[in-house]
Design a binder for these strands. Structure first.
Length: 348
DNA sequence: AACACCTCCAACCGCAGTAAT
DNA sequence: GATTACTGCGGTTGGAGGTGT
């Protein structure tokens, strides 16, 4: 596993460590202690660079390392700390005895991030995913002149592009880039705008749209309602955006289930009140009234993309996409399809 | 069975901060 | 103060093993 084995230009070995190398390193450190990593490998009889030895020791051979699956408690702690600290893996690891920053980082990227996405939570901002609103904002910015309104209507989006909505979307986008300023006070303002926007949605003649547009309208509405649900939750729990929320406020209600390796089922929603699946099914019941019961089967997660996840409250470094393409491509497929449609009708 | 694709994670890389000279 | 060495950190890579066809 890991990087390719072999040697570098200095004759130092790279790649996976053998049991023999591990033993040499452990024996040496037990006798002489660690530190002076540059000279350590030579003294220990290892053909490795000091950096490689240090990493092997701190991430794998250290006696206080806790191996094995993360517990639900650890997982929730990671989520809560990440909400506050961002990708400060070493800082997060400091709160989890026996876990390394590398291990936590990997676990975040391979497990937790996916769960949050599934719940409709942006894993970078820890806010409800707003990328569809970004798309809408984009559409609005391209449909400002009257000659393009008809094209907008063809997509079933025209009725949504009201002044209220545009104002709301702009505000939310602004908040998304300033997550720490997402206070309960301004959330309430956005909520009011959302309610106004929803009234427009409910009054819009969905049946006048073409079939695909009608489907996207209903999907769009369900997502809007989910956003509203999450915003309500945020406004009711002001501590969600503060450090004081970190560990003390972990709660277990309204949980999303997942299977543990030992077969038992444990539950967590990382302290978020709404799971995506619950909200969607709830909202779909409402939407069926205006869409003739034809609820699109696509999931919320699948229609939204996440590359818009720009910065964390404390860390603006770029997002890591561990698996390169698969999950992200799936997530962005529907948005891409919409962009393709825009492109096809000459709006891009 | 064979192949292709996907997931996971150990290990690497480059940069930044700090200490020593 | 400048330079060098050391250490720590976050992002990224790529191969082993798993899964699907």
């Amino acid at each position: 596993m890991g990087k390719s084995s072999g040697s570098d230009k200095n004759g130092l070995k790279k790649g996976p460590w053998t049991a023999e190398e591990d033993q040499k390193l452990v024996d040496y450190i037990q006798k002489h202690g660690h530190g002076k990593w540059r000279t350590l490998p030579k003294n220990a009889g290892l053909k490795r660079c000091g950096k490689s030895c240090r990493l092997r020791w701190t991430n794998y051979l250290r006696p206080d390392i806790k191996r094995g699956m993360f517990s639900v408690g650890e997982e929730e702690t990671i989520v809560q700390l990440h909400k506050v600290l961002g990708n400060k893996w070493s800082a997060i690891a400091a709160h989890l005895p026996g876990r390394t920053d590398n291990e936590i980082k990997n676990y975040w990227n391979t497990h937790i991030k996916k769960k949050l996405l599934k719940m409709g939570i942006d894993p970078v901002t820890h806010c409800p995913r707003l990328d569809l609103l970004q798309l809408s904002s984009f559409l609005a910015s391209n449909f400002c002149n009257s000659s393009q309104v008809n094209a907008s209507n063809c997509l079933g989006l025209g009725p949504f592009l009201t002044p209220d909505f545009l104002n709301f979307a702009t505000s939310l986008l602004s908040c998304q880039h300033r997550a720490q300023e997402f206070s309960p006070e301004n959330v309430q303002g956005h909520l009011n705008q959302m309610l106004s926007f929803q009234q427009n949605l409910l009054q819009c003649p969905v049946e006048a749209c073409t079939k695909p547009a009608s489907e996207s309208s209903a999907q769009f509405l369900s997502e809007t309602q989910l956003l509203q649900a999450n915003l309500e939750q945020i406004s009711q729990e002001p501590s969600n955006f503060g450090w004081q929320n970190s560990l003390a406020n972990l709660n277990q209600d309204g949980a999303e289930c997942f299977q543990m390796p030992n077969g038992s089922t444990e539950t967590t929603n990382y302290g978020y009140q709404y799971s995506y699946s619950d909200s969607l099914s709830h909202n779909q019941a409402k939407i069926s009234n205006i869409n003739g019961g034809n609820i699109p089967k696509m999931s919320f997660g699948s229609i939204l993309s996440t590359p818009s996840s720009t910065s964390t409250p404390m860390n603006s470094s770029s997002t890591t996409y561990v698996n390169g393409s698969t999950e992200d491509e799936r997530d962005s497929y529907c948005s891409n399809a919409l962009f393709d449609r825009l492109d096809a009708i000459g709006l891009l």
